[in-house]
Amino acid sequence: WEVERLVFRVPLDDGAPVPDAVTRRQSCSTAIAALAWVPHCAFAFDVSVGAATGDVLYPASLVGEWRCERVLTAVEGDQTAAEGAWRALGGGTTPFVAGRAETYETRFVAPAAAATYRFEGRDVAGVVLDRAFELGKRRGAGGRGAVSWDPRAPSILRDGDATLTVVSRTSEISEAGFGFDELVRVDAAAGGLIGGAARVSRLVRCKRRFRRAFAKDGRRVVEGLEIVKTYRV
């Protein structure tokens, strides 16, 4: 198996104070019991895991608005899962077809709490992606409701009745380039045959890597590669 993240949260809620050592032993035996229940070709994911702290930091020079051209270049594996992830992360209702290009506005803003990175030997204040602005612009008129994002809780993005929560994150910023790797839990109405008030949680990993470049006419641009993977939950 390719297990990239395995989380167990073990409730010990009988109310009695439990010494640490006993808690660990009980957690361990419960975890082993849970593992025995994991079906083949699947891994357990605790959907109650909270949001990751902090946010992805971008170079200060990115502050302000940009026009982003995005091209879907390749899809492998389960097409339905890939399309679901793509729609959940902002793809909207437009056709999910390799080779398709879309253009939307995006912007970078100062984070709620200043954060710095090292650049040419100095500490420089970085900026963050305005996730609500980008999602709203990308969805355009086809949006499924209000998009909201609080820069003080940057790992949570609400999109109509769906919530995207970054549950784990790594990011880097250096003179060679910058980027991130985020594991995102998508909570949304089940729809389809389940319907009603039922909710489902899906797990999507989104990695982006950027580098600075120049357009043919010499203008500065930023080029990026994105890889989105889905996982059985």
């Binding site: 390719e2 390749a74 890939a82 992830a85 506005e105």
Partner: peptide
């Protein structure tokens, strides 16, 4: 993973 999708991104100043 059950699926993977690759995209290219390009940011230009409007």
């Amino acid at each position: 993973p059950t699926s993977s999708a690759k995209s290219t991104l390009r940011f230009e100043r409007p």
